[in-house]
């Protein structure tokens, strides 16, 4: 990070020089330190890595397709053949949960990426220039935060028809405003740092200052807020699916698996209700403990704020 290179060297201050590890080894040591300092957050990270792996490599991990029906094996409980059992059409629940996680997490990731790109751009722009641009921007953010997000999403997706790309764009757009304030406040405080002044004195253009100096120094805030937003967005995507506005069938959707026609058969095979909800809960839980840990590690001053 730029701030580190600007700081007086450790040796000059009379401390023992810190061993600088870079690249893969550095990342590995960083991860080890994180695991020791924040075991719960690290557990969350590991769990998410496992789920992410399962979602990405779903076709390799299961021999059943998510839409393969087998009417000789309807509503079965967990067994060696079907780890999670089967649903009312004899579809393998393990495959459906894996593919469902793939779809739900994929949409959530893409939506959060879009949301954070927009939020960071707006925050950098309004926070750096200040003045009336900032004031107008803040009023818009105030209004956007006061909007009933899920209601507008239901209305829009319900009328435009659910598809993966519509969901990513709409969920991304509606979740962008909420983090503008947090990122903007980081921009405003970094803007006053001496190294920004120094860069300006050296004749750096606004564009260069924003991209080379501001952005790298607020990036950890963006990452932290992305982690927290991901948890929330996964819940929003699941709620949409639950209400019938998720990805269209036969694509499995973790939220949709908990409602609709499945509901009538859950009495006969309650596992149908157990698995999708468990996965949603654990994923959201993991993102939250990871977010908490990241916040503590990256910036202790932020403790307690959201």
């Amino acid at each position: 990070m730029a701030s580190e290179s600007n700081a007086p060297s450790a040796a000059a201050l009379g401390y023992a020089p810190r061993v600088q590890r870079t690249g893969a080894t550095g990342a590995l040591f960083g991860l080890g330190r994180f695991a020791r300092r924040k075991p719960l957050g690290f557990a969350g990270l590991v769990f998410l890595a496992v789920i992410g792996f399962g979602a990405v490599f779903a076709p390799l991990l299961t021999s059943y397709g998510y839409a393969d029906t087998d009417f000789t094996a309807r509503l079965n409980g967990p067994s060696a053949a079907h780890y999670f059992g089967t649903d009312n059409l004899g579809r393998d629940l393990f495959s459906r949960v894996l593919y469902g996680a793939r779809v739900s997490l994929g949409i959530s990731f893409a939506a959060v990426l879009l949301a954070k790109v927009i939020a960071t751009t707006v925050a950098l722009f309004t926070g750096y220039y200040g003045g009336w641009i900032d004031k107008v921007g803040q009023r818009f953010v105030d209004l956007a935060i006061a909007l009933p997000r899920l209601i507008i999403l239901i209305t829009l997706i319900g009328l435009m028809g659910p598809s993966v790309s519509t969901m990513i764009i709409l969920v991304g757009l509606t979740n962008a405003p909420s983090s503008v304030r947090l990122i903007r406040s980081a921009v405003v405080s970094v803007r006053e740092e001496p190294y920004i002044e120094a860069a300006r004195a050296l004749g750096a253009t606004d564009r260069r200052i924003i991209l080379q100096h501001l952005l790298p120094n607020i990036f950890h805030i963006v990452m932290f807020s992305a982690t927290v937003t991901l948890g929330a967005v996964i819940l929003i995507v699941a709620s949409l699916g639950f209400l019938g506005y998720g990805v269209p069938p036969p694509q499995p959707d973790l939220g949709a698996m908990l409602s609709g026609t499945g509901l009538t058969y859950m009495r006969q095979n309650p596992w149908m209700a157990v698995w999708p909800g468990t996965v949603i809960t654990l994923v959201v839980f993991a993102f939250n403990v990871l977010g908490d840990a990241l916040r503590d590690v990256l910036d202790p001053r932020l403790r307690g704020s959201r």
């Binding site: 819940l235 639950f242 939220g255 908990l258 009495r267 209700a273 999708p276 909800g277 809960t281 959201v284």
Partner: peptide
Amino acid sequence: AILFYAIPGFWIATLILVFSSL
């Protein structure tokens, strides 16, 4: 606290409906 945040309310509702009927 974190668990309550992470559990989707509609899932608990579904579970209650399924198991109380069962």
